[in-house]
Computed example of a mutant assay.
Amino acid sequence: MTAETKRILVVDDEETLCDVMAFNLEAEGYVVEKAYSAEEALAYDLSEFDLILLDIMMGEISGLQLVRIMRSNPATASVPVIFCTAKDAEDDMIRGLDTGADDYITKPYSLQTVLARIRSVLRRASSSSRDNTSSSSTPMLTVQFMGLQLSRRTHVCMVDGEEVRMPRKEFEILFRLLSDRNRVFSRAELLSEVWPGETVVADRAVDVNVTRIRQKIGRYGRHIITRSGYGYGFMDDPV
């Protein structure tokens, strides 16, 4: 698809930066709207955008909180989000990605870097959409182990009949482990599948997400085993 068909919302409380970014994106052919706060962003129908470019440090509602709101709403759960922020510590990056962002860019950044990341995220979103609507190559939509069940159709994780809220990255990691049980995946494999093309992601992001997954899935957490120096797997009979 061409840039002209893509709608992007730029959200940043630094109005000058927001205006400049919007101007440059429009020059690339995107249809762009602006919001100077998360509150202003929520006044839009966010489901109509193809991508949200978002700052983290804003007013009463932060960028992280806005993403949580989006991911909890089925209408906006799959809208791609890229954080553009001055928070450049590794823990900040992991927190942002763990919240459900699709990419994380630290300020100061070049326009060309932002444009490249936007194109990459939009390509992945478009590819995912095609996969989900293709009748000839429909990916696995549901995986289950005893009372643990994940559905890609509804993006819901059920643990013994109770729904467990799970950010996108956690969901995708667990879905991948469950879809090929009794196999150990390296961190590099999980990074390439769950964060494809995202050069800013550290191995630590996988470890943090797996730790949280184990805590959330209760008695099934022990089935996620660690192979020191390699990675993780979901085992039917963990040792």
Results as ranks from 00 to 15, higher is better:
V143I: 11
Y109F: 15
S151E: 02
M1Q: 13
G96M: 07
I224W: 00
G218I: 01
Q112V: 14
T5G: 09
E15N: 11
R165T: 12
E170K: 04
I118G: 02
V114S: 05
Y44R: 06
A77T: 03
G63S: 06
I8W: 02
D50Y: 07
E172I: 03
L9V: 01
T142A: 08
G218N: 11
E39A: 14
E163L: 10
T113N: 10
L190M: 14
D160N: 12
V79Y: 01
G218M: 05
L190Q: 03
V143F: 04
G233C: 06
G29D: 05
S72Q: 10
G29M: 07
N182Q: 11
S72F: 05
S192Q: 10
T226D: 13
G96N: 09
Q149P: 02
N209C: 09
S127P: 02
L42M: 12
G231H: 00
L54W: 00
D180T: 10
W195R: 02
R130G: 06
R219G: 04
P196C: 12
C157M: 11
T85S: 04
A101Y: 06
I69C: 06
L174G: 00
G59F: 07
T211L: 08
K34V: 12
L46V: 13
S192E: 12
A41Q: 06
V208F: 08
L97S: 01
E172T: 05
L122S: 11
E4F: 08
M235N: 05
W195K: 00
S72Y: 07
L177I: 02
A101D: 04
E33D: 13
I217Y: 00
D50A: 12
E162R: 07
G63H: 02
V32E: 01
S128C: 10
C84L: 10
D102P: 09
F171Y: 03
S78H: 00
K87R: 13
S62N: 10
T199A: 15
P238A: 08
S179V: 06
Y104A: 09
V208K: 05
N209P: 04
R212Q: 15
V10K: 00
G231A: 11
R187G: 02
T211R: 10
R123H: 14
V31C: 09
T106V: 13
M146R: 12
V210E: 04
T154L: 04
K34P: 04
R212F: 05
G96H: 06
P196N: 12
T16M: 11
I217E: 01
R124I: 12
L51P: 02
V81G: 03
R181D: 05
R119Y: 11
S110R: 15
P108Y: 08
P196E: 11
A101P: 03
D19E: 13
I105G: 01
A75K: 11
S186I: 08
K169N: 08
I52W: 02
G197R: 04
L17G: 09
I56E: 03
G147P: 11
R124G: 09
G147A: 12
S120W: 13
T226I: 14
I224E: 03
R214A: 07
I118W: 02
R222K: 10
T85I: 05
S137C: 08
R117H: 09
L66Y: 06
D91S: 11
S62L: 07
L25T: 00
R68T: 15
E90R: 14
C157A: 14
